[in-house]
């Protein structure tokens, strides 16, 4: 009895969470970046390549852009558009294993 109430509550919580933030696919989150960083994160000029960074490096860079801890011309405006868990998915998409 208790458990099923808990399950219902959990489901409610989960569904309201997913309403606020829909679980997005890593590719759909990451492809918008490649217009600047190059297909698959391989940049040809000026803008840094992402495919040479580790997942952890990308994640940490995005977090510090998002929190305005790292100076940038543009990336802090972009990074603020994503939740931390989305930044993980994006970092996993572009990043190479350490």
């Amino acid at each position: 009895m208790k458990q099923s109430t808990f399950t219902v509550l959990l489901m409610l919580l989960l569904s309201s969470a997913s309403y606020a933030e829909i679980q997005l696919n890593a590719t759909m989150l990451s492809l918008p970046c490649t217009g600047c960083h190059g297909s698959e994160g391989k940049s040809q000029r000026a803008i840094p390549s992402l495919n040479v960074m580790s997942r952890e490096q990308i994640y940490r860079a995005m977090k510090s852009f998002k929190n305005d801890q790292r100076h940038a011309t543009l990336m802090n405006r972009i990074a603020k558009g994503y939740s931390d868990s989305e930044l993980r998915l994006i970092a996993d998409y572009f990043g190479v294993k350490p």
Partner: peptide, 14 residues
């Protein structure tokens, strides 16, 4: 300005 040129190169390639 440098990034704008880099962006153009990359979006054309993409």
């Amino acid at each position: 300005a440098g990034y704008a040129r880099g962006w153009y190169r990359n979006i054309v390639a993409d």
